[in-house]
Design a protein around this nucleic acid. Sequence first.
DNA 1: ACAATAGTTGAATAATTATTCAACCGTTGA
DNA 2: TCAACGGTTGAATAATTATTCAACTATTGT
Lengths: 119, 119
Amino acid sequence: MKDLLCEENCVHENIVEKVKEKLPDENLIYDLAELFKVFGDSTRTKILSCLEVSPLCVCDICECLNMNKSAISHQLRILRQAKLVKARKSGKEVIYSLDDEHVSKIFECGISHLLEGKK
Amino acid sequence: MKDLLCEENCVHENIVEKVKEKLPDENLIYDLAELFKVFGDSTRTKILSCLEVSPLCVCDICECLNMNKSAISHQLRILRQAKLVKARKSGKEVIYSLDDEHVSKIFECGISHLLEGKK
DNA sequence: ACAATAGTTGAATAATTATTCAACCGTTGA
DNA sequence: TCAACGGTTGAATAATTATTCAACTATTGT
């Protein structure tokens, strides 16, 4: 009931004060979560992995992931909005490629953590 | 209808072949997405941000985020399972702290991408 | 032994979201 | 001009998941 604010029960006031001070901007943390949410879907990470190898048209990606165009297109939109991939029209095709060298770096960090855990 | 396999329509066979070859292990990509999913929630990123400043008990975290113990505890479990935080008992309290130096690195990568986009 | 505090947990609810389906747009070649 | 192909889109559905609530365990101080 009075669970709501966790009152001043055990709270170590001075530490909490320090933490609140040093905490990054609320919006930045929010945006960060939004970004990682984009990475947090295996269809999208697969698409990014494919594009790390080579720029590809939508049909190529479909073939690589064994999924239909609609599903892929929806996910590509999300990746575009997050500025992780960019699109270039070439005749009837749309060629997608990575839009940011950070993608590989973020992947590496994640893999690094995963391998650490296996030890 | 024949959307299912995207058939051999436009597919650039040789490129797709190369991509399939060079693609990382399916399970690794899946685990990677699972990891980023954990980062993809603002409550959890806030918790991690707090713990970057200092180890904290559950009540302290509640106070910092203005949320109740149950909600925080549920999210801490997820962070524990992902081996991003660790817990140490101290009397009645449980002190949480970061379990991996990769957390900060992953945050930095993400922030780096976000700032890039602002330009 | 007991009351109080710190934290955890399972079930329920509400909200978010990935995929499918069907219809659509734009470009090309006949 | 029109049929065919590559791709996009909105609505519907199904699945996932964050938060709340209530009940619970464990530890401490009296």
